[in-house]
Simulated scan of single mutants.
Amino acid sequence: MAYADIFERAYRQASDAQMKDDDGLPDDIFSLIEKAVPMPTHNLVPTISPKEAQAPGAQIVPTRKKNTSIPSTKTTPSSSGYFPDKSLSIPGELVLARAQSERVYYPGKVLSFNEKSNKYKVLFASGHEPSLERARFFTRYEEGFLTCQLGALEQPKLDPNYENEELQSLLSKIYPGLYAILAGAQDEGGRLTNFLKGGKARRDLSSRVSPGQFNRQEYMYINNMLQAEFLPDLITTKRLGLKLKRAQPLGEHVLMKKKGVVTEDFNDQLRLHFVLEVLLPETITRLTMDMNKCTYKEADEQVERVENNSQHWVDEVLAARESFLEGRAS
């Protein structure tokens, strides 16, 4: 079989494998190809003379040519400007970003992309909206999100001993629906489907997280309760020290790693993403539905329509980084 045919078949198999396992994280598709076809250390460039090309049964013989190209991570320019990073959810992608004059990173939200300048307008907690190159910010699915140096940021003072029995009571009524999502038996909002689909469909979920009608203290309390219920084994959850009654006993296995649940093969960081991007927004919608006596669709629309001037997303970014770091440590 010709080398080109072997390569094409291997590439097709690797591409299919990547599409089936598109989890939003970088996939080294070429490592799969190299297992099937040992790659040469130099580029293979087909060479054949015009006279030989006209001969019946002519074959192209690969010859070695030194690779003088310079690897680049920049987006490819088009005739109309530049292509934006298609993995980003615009507007709404939550990031850690640094402005032109800064060396440290702050929570930000991507608002738009400018094709002429090939830059992204990013909203900072300060209210500034500078235009930044893609290399100046990290999303929650990138390693730099965990390793970059954060700048000093004055955060709102929240009561660490805050308790709300009414919220606990309301949440206890919602747990059965959340457990149904975890078992793959319910997905009215489509969040489970998008999360399992991976790639951009999963990343778009972070832009749909909203506190709805709850203030920052209540919103963080709801988030803490969900982690206490679904991630009791993580350090970040144990540190919360919440004395809450669990809806279901933990059993001998970690809850979200049990057989028969959609998260059984997830690592700790992916389990945290699942709670923050699937269960948390589901909880806000379902609480809104119960409190306002409306349908699920109406509640979902109410949450998305909320004019959010409280900058809850700043808490969301910082809480995500802290949870991912401590989840990794555990």
Rank of each mutant, 00 (worst) to 15 (best):
D315G: 02
C294K: 05
R208H: 02
T73D: 12
S206E: 07
N164E: 07
R246N: 09
P211F: 01
N308L: 08
D268Y: 14
S207K: 03
H312Q: 06
F83N: 15
E218H: 10
I33C: 06
I60Q: 06
Q155M: 14
P249H: 12
S15K: 13
Q13C: 10
R321T: 07
L94Y: 00
Y120H: 05
S80E: 14
R203K: 09
R203T: 02
S126T: 14
E8Y: 08
Q18F: 11
E93G: 00
L153N: 06
R328S: 12
L192C: 07
Q227C: 12
I6E: 12
A36M: 15
K157W: 01
G241H: 01
E304I: 07
L226A: 01
T41M: 14
Q54F: 10
G57T: 12
E129P: 00
S15R: 10
L280T: 03
Y82A: 11
V317D: 01
K238R: 15
Y175T: 01
D27V: 10
N114H: 13
L94W: 04
E142K: 06
S131N: 11
L132I: 10
R246Y: 12
V37K: 06
K197A: 12
I181K: 00
G327Y: 02
E218K: 01
Q18D: 11
F214D: 00
T193A: 13
Q59Y: 10
T73F: 14
G144I: 11
I222H: 00
C294G: 03
F113Y: 15
Q13D: 15
Q149K: 12
F30A: 09
E8R: 15
F274R: 02
G184H: 05
A319Y: 05
H42R: 13
L167W: 01
Q54D: 11
Q54A: 11
R239L: 15
P56Q: 14
M256Q: 07
L231A: 10
P50G: 04
T285C: 12
P50D: 08
M220K: 03
P38L: 09
S69W: 09
N114D: 15
V104R: 09
R64V: 03
S15F: 14
T73N: 12
L250Q: 15
T263W: 05
L146K: 07
V95A: 03
R202G: 04
S126Y: 11
V314C: 00
A329G: 05
R271N: 04
V95D: 04
L287F: 05
G190L: 07
T41N: 12
E252F: 06
R203S: 02
F30S: 09
E277T: 04
A135Q: 09
G199W: 02
G81I: 13
R136A: 09
L255G: 05
A228T: 03
V104S: 14
S69L: 15
K259G: 11
A183P: 04
T237N: 10
K86L: 15
E326A: 11
N224Q: 13
